[in-house]
């Protein structure tokens, strides 16, 4: 089979997950270093240097996955973030196979018991309501608690006259909660409709990966849509598309760069420039600095 660029993206991401879990988190000696996920790069990076660089490879600019809390720290003005709905968590509403056990494990070992962290803060002095998804919690999937937290973050922007910034990273709607998950797409879109009527800005930031029901709802409804370089963004997964269409996927299919050329995304912005870029855009939209 012909090797496509899109396949390479997947492969290197898969490698990254293992090396991070096996290395840095476990604290074994290899954990001092991380090899760049980008096959073309392969640079060996000091972990401390990688963290300081917001998990962007200093050699090639490859963006490693970044947890929600580290991302928030990198986005908001220092000391301004106040978390909301921290205790809001998923329940096994359908009695879905193994879901309650899985939630138990995830809730037990995590500081953030959901696939999104929400709160308020400021960016470049502009008051924002923030929702940042975390792909490491059940693949960033959106269940009822995830949807509720995001819907409240949108409502918080509207009621508080704040700008809204949502950073997406998600495999889509969480199947374990069935149609409840699907309905979160409508719920959040309804809140976004009100925010739009209130003429408050919404900036959507797409990170690797953003797919399925999240892409098909709030992630693509931003007044501005910004993506991180190399992020995989799409509705259906590449395997499903290949199986349905029996076609080879084009080079770079469903990457941020591919979608920029096809008109979905306003700009691709490096993580290191993200805070300043968003603050600058909010300045244009709100007439501030």
């Amino acid at each position: 089979m012909k090797k496509t660029g899109e396949k390479r993206v997947f492969k290197r991401r898969a490698v990254a997950g293992t090396s991070r879990r096996g290395g840095r988190k476990a604290g074994i000696p290899e954990g001092l270093w991380t090899k760049c996920e980008s096959e073309a790069c392969g640079q060996v990076i000091f972990n401390q240097q990688l963290e300081e660089n917001l998990r962007v490879c200093p050699a090639c600019g490859h963006h490693f996955p970044l947890g929600a809390r580290a991302r928030i720290a990198a986005l908001v003005d220092e000391g301004t973030f106040e978390e909301c709905d921290r205790g809001l968590r998923a329940v096994d509403s359908l009695g879905f196979p193994n879901y309650a056990d899985r939630l138990g494990v995830e809730h037990g070992r995590r500081e953030t018991p959901e696939a999104v962290v929400c709160g308020t803060g400021s960016m470049g002095g502009v008051r924002v309501s923030l929702a940042v998804m975390d792909f490491t919690f059940l693949g960033g999937s959106m269940g009822a608690a995830t949807g509720e937290k995001i819907a409240r973050a949108v409502a918080r922007a509207e009621s508080g006259g704040r700008a809204l910034v949502i950073v997406s990273a998600s495999g889509g709607a969480r199947m374990h909660e069935g149609c409840f998950s699907l309905m979160q797409m409508a719920k959040i879109s309804g809140e976004l409709q009100r925010l739009a009527e209130a003429r408050l800005p919404y900036i959507s930031v797409l990170t690797h990966p953003t797919t399925g029901g999240v892409t098909a709802s709030f992630a693509t409804l931003g007044d501005l849509i910004i993506a991180e370089p190399g992020a995989m963004i799409g509705f259906a997964g590449p395997r499903v598309i290949r199986e349905t269409t029996h076609q080879e996927l084009p080079e770079g299919f469903q990457t941020a760069e591919f979608l920029l050329e096809r008109g979905l995304i306003d700009r691709i912005v490096s993580r290191r420039e993200m805070r300043d870029t968003i603050a600058r855009f909010l300045g244009y939209l709100l007439g501030g600095a």
């Binding site: 809001l88 998923a90 329940v91 719920k187 309804g190």
Partner: peptide, 8 residues
């Protein structure tokens, strides 16, 4: 739609 979904 705002009501749909259960959580803790």
């Amino acid at each position: 739609f705002r009501r749909l979904g259960t959580f803790d």
